[in-house]
Design a protein around this nucleic acid. Structure first.
Length: 137
DNA sequence: GCCAACGTTGGC
DNA sequence: GCCAACGTTGGC
């Protein structure tokens, strides 16, 4: 199983909506590196749900339930989306500032490459952030 | 609201 | 194919 992190501005689409919808097509990615990451996702992979701009924290965990398929919101180009299902809310959201300050999370793509919207997370980093969030999952 | 980072576009 | 201009993202 691989681990990922996806970003969303809560203004546009937040964790509460993800939970309300259950399964949600993760559309609108228009960046090649992010697209490559979407394509590499496999059913059963897990991803952190991160609130950018407002909150700036990891708030929950989602699971990949459908692998990459053409993004219906793209009028041209070969962009893809995946379906993500809400799995768990973190008992304690993990703030960007906390992750930046944590030596165990050195090299985290979220910190290094702040503009990427879909990124891989190493197993080590994944488990560390889960622990910070109070989630045993 | 500002600005740095950085991906994309387009002129040459 | 280089590089300047531009647009967008996202932290502060």
């Amino acid at each position: 199983m691989a681990f990922w992190l996806v970003k969303s501005e809560p203004d546009a689409f937040g964790w509460d909506q993800q939970v309300a919808n259950g399964t949600e097509p993760w559309t609108g990615v228009r960046n090649y590196m992010a697209r490559n990451n979407l394509r590499a996702m496999r059913i059963g992979d897990r991803a952190f749900f991160y609130h950018s701009n407002i909150g700036r924290e990891v708030v929950g965990v989602v699971e990949v339930v459908r692998e990459a398929y053409p993004d219906p919101t793209a009028s041209e180009g070969d962009w893809v989306c995946v379906d993500l299902r809400a799995l768990a809310k973190l008992p304690r959201p993990v703030a960007l500032t906390a992750m930046k300050a944590d030596p165990a999370l050195e090299g985290l793509a979220l910190i290094r490459q702040s503009r990427l919207s879909v990124m891989p997370v190493s197993a080590g980093h994944w488990h560390h952030i889960c622990a910070l969030g109070g989630w045993g999952g």
